[in-house]
Design a protein around this nucleic acid. Structure first.
Lengths: 224, 224
DNA sequence: CAACTGACTTGAACATGTTCAAATAATACG
DNA sequence: CGTATTATTTGAACATGTTCAAGTCAGTTG
């Protein structure tokens, strides 16, 4: 009665995925053809398409893994760290660490950014779940800290967006070890946390508070 | 002796471009094939490729036109407007006005965002000129106003980036007439100009000034 | 004007992502 | 165990972006 999707070909799927990632790393996303991937995995072309609807979907599956690993690693590295700045630093830097060898094909994730209808669009409906998972980590990051309710609701999504920008910057960053990206992350986080603290300073709060309110209003108005 | 690229086939090129745009509008970027475009323009497939190296290059050429028209229209609408807020409003809203019927294929501009090497990447080397032209308009926009030297150097590029984000948002905006995008633009511009004014207020300048300095430093560090 | 040159045009051929009907293997069921 | 059903696998066929060798045509040259 029930379709009982048994973990039968699960091995095959994993094999195709790992083979593909290997090839992508070696020769980039474009150069590695689906036929290359299939034959490298000792599998027929059609098999690859049985498990992955499109070539980009392979990268998407890879990125799912990345997110799982990232959540793990982040929680591990968080141990003993309770400050907002520290915790955010962990989230961002550990992500870069995980992605460090994969800049050559990471760009495939952005291929459908401009196509709202596409199932793999970063901002589209089809990736809602992946997105929610990614946002969740940022929620965790700020959960314990002294941030207003209001901010707690909107900041995680904003941080996710910033993090997406970081990945893009990372892809373009040709400095050794992508140190420029790492430095930028630190600078931005310093600025951000200082700005948040500023909001709590009684002296100038009256001046800055309206801005914060306005900014939150904008995010809401943007349909966050 | 001289190659004298006579305006011989210029007509053909324009015909192909306009036919393509027409088809893109009618059925979207994906659906309109190069063969469709060629035959609609009463031209062989190869002719299309004689004038445009790739399908996306057609959209790129279209966007060149858009930028020219945008510069014109903006300068026209600027007449009699000298305030920063007003002038920026013109730049952003007139762009949306020009693009209003082309949301369906505008996404093609973003296709290579994740590929630094690709000649059509929005952030890549191959589009440097187009980018410079676009940035120039923002420079013009703030030129007359009371903005620090330092800002004059960096703000235009930052505004260009914001404007790119606006286009993306615009593509995703399903509200009638994309009013949400228009509203968002106004809100963001209000916030921005108020923030800039804040910097000039003697009372709180000491508090906010360091932030501005830091922000500019970040942009510079990012290799702007 | 005849030959030449280079811009322009052509359409067949190619590469590669994707689809699909058919074959095979695995599993469930009686 | 034998059959039915479902999962998996296959590779040929297809669609479409792109390349390219060959042709055409207009203008230039001698």
């Amino acid at each position: 009665m029930n379709p009982v999707t048994k973990p039968a070909g699960e091995k095959t799927k994993e094999l195709i995925l790992s083979t593909a990632v290997e090839l992508f790393r070696k020769s980039g996303f474009e150069t590695a053809t689906m036929r290359d991937i299939a034959s490298s995995a000792d599998v027929a072309l059609g098999a690859a398409y049985y498990y992955f609807p499109t070539k980009e979907a392979i990268v998407s599956a890879y990125y799912d893994q990345v997110q799982r690993i990232h959540a793990e690693k982040t929680r591990e590295d968080w141990k003993g760290k309770s400050g907002l700045r520290e915790r955010l630093g962990v989230v961002f830097h550990s992500k870069l660490e995980i992605l460090k060898d994969d800049r050559s094909f990471l760009g495939a994730l952005f291929r459908y950014t401009g196509d709202p209808q596409h199932p793999l669009s970063v901002f589209g409906k089809g990736t809602q779940l992946q997105r929610a998972q990614s946002v969740a980590i940022f929620h965790e990051a700020i959960a314990g800290t002294s941030i207003s309710e209001e901010m707690q609701g909107l900041l995680p999504a904003a941080l996710w967006l910033v993090h997406l920008g970081m990945i893009l910057f990372f892809i373009y960053d040709e400095t050794k070890g992508q140190q420029r990206t790492h430095k930028l992350v630190d600078s931005v986080l310093n600025l951000l946390t200082q700005a948040i603290e500023l909001t709590n300073s009684a002296l100038i709060r009256p001046f800055v508070q309206p801005f914060q309110t306005k900014m939150l209003e904008i995010l809401r108005e943007a349909g966050w």
